[in-house]
């Protein structure tokens, strides 16, 4: 039984389609991510669920209740904004208690205290937003959204304004809290790595459409088209006729071929250990090499085609620029799209 249903939702700005007939269903407690480049409609979809944008067609249901035409305050959703949107005139305690006061709930003090503990902000109750760091502000925003016990938690790129280290630790914490409360969560991001670490399910969006949905592994290993392949995995994508020339094979079908940069192996010239039944072997030259820490990223050229190869960074095993090498491409890792 689906908990959140987005049924054929369409939204247009003037004549531009921002959301094109989108249908999504989520189960209770699921952590779903809307992933896409800026302008793909992911934030608009999130804001539509929150009631901050009207939709032109379609329905949105939460827990069996049609909320399409309800005002934001009646929807029972919590939202965290990219810029936090904390109330500058209130301290941490009052910010978190705001929703409870508006709903005239009892036991405000104990509920807020519990929430403050959960987001690890004990001792900061009296501080004002401008006295807190970005990470702390985001925790307050999260606590403020969660304390009213919403049915769905909406997160609009909540971590993108933070630096890498704090982002990583908040990712973990967010995930922990989400599991602890078992709250259905919709997360919006443009960062595919963040989407993969956090999500139970990813919806890849492009130009107002959901182009693919599935678990992080599914999305990463079997992208349905070249857009997803390029966006999610930095795939090497070739037109089929050029690829046929490259591997000297005529039996291949499909329009395009895609393979991930980490499935390729580089070997020095002369070394022969790979099975040629299962691999293609190409000759090439290293055009460029860059290091991202644990990964070595080569740009390799073979017969005027260039592509990326990722290799784990083993000490001393770096091919220099200009080195002639063999490239081993396992056939089963190629996706024919």
């Amino acid at each position: 039984m689906s908990y959140v249903t987005i049924d054929q939702v369409t939204k247009k700005y003037e004549n531009q389609v921002v959301l094109n007939d989108i249908s999504i269903t989520l189960n209770k407690g699921e952590f779903a991510t809307l992933l896409g480049q800026s302008g793909c409609g992911k934030s608009t979809l999130l804001r539509s669920i929150a009631g901050l944008e009207d939709v032109d067609a379609g329905r949105i249901l939460i827990d069996g209740k049609d909320i399409t035409n309800l005002s934001p305050r009646q929807r029972e959703v919590g939202m965290v904004f990219q810029s936090y949107a904390l109330f500058p005139n209130m301290n941490v305690f009052d910010n978190i208690a705001y929703g409870l006061k508006m709903k005239k709930v009892k036991n405000i003090k104990s509920k807020v205290a519990k929430m403050i503990e959960m987001v690890d902000l004990a001792g900061k109750e009296e501080s004002y937003p401008h006295q807190l760091s970005g990470g702390q502000q985001q925790r307050v925003a999260l606590a403020r959204a969660l304390v009213i016990e919403p049915k769905v938690l909406l997160l609009d790129e909540p971590l993108s304004a933070l630096d890498a280290k704090i982002r990583k630790s908040l990712q973990k914490e967010l995930k922990r809290i989400q599991k602890e409360l078992n709250i259905t969560t919709i997360f919006v991001t443009h960062d595919q790595e963040e989407a993969m670490t956090m999500s139970d399910r990813i919806f890849v969006m492009n130009k107002g459409n959901v182009v693919q949905s599935g678990s992080p592994t599914e999305i990463y290993t079997t992208p349905v088209n070249t857009f997803v392949a390029n966006f999610i995995g930095n795939y090497n994508v070739f037109k089929m006729d050029t690829f046929r020339k490259l591997v000297r094979s005529t039996e291949l079908k499909g329009d395009e071929v895609a393979f991930r940069p980490e499935v390729l192996k580089l070997l020095p010239i002369g070394e022969e250990s790979q099975d040629l039944q299962e691999n293609w072997r190409l000759k090439g030259i290293i055009k460029d090499v860059s290091m991202t820490g644990n990964i070595l990223r080569y740009e390799v050229e073979s017969e005027d085609f260039s592509f990326h190869v990722d290799d784990l960074h083993h000490r001393g095993a770096i091919f220099d620029q200009g080195t002639h090498i063999q490239i081993i491409l396992p056939k089963k890792e190629c996706l024919f799209l």
Binding site: A85, M102, K103
Partner: peptide, 24 residues
């Protein structure tokens, strides 16, 4: 955005103006 946030937390538009916008 402050009004958006306040409304999602259950405030009416007028409450949002009075408690969140006006004091600031």
């Amino acid at each position: 955005q402050l009004v958006d946030a306040a409304e999602l937390l259950g405030a009416t538009k007028f409450q949002a103006f009075r408690t969140v916008v006006f004091p600031n």
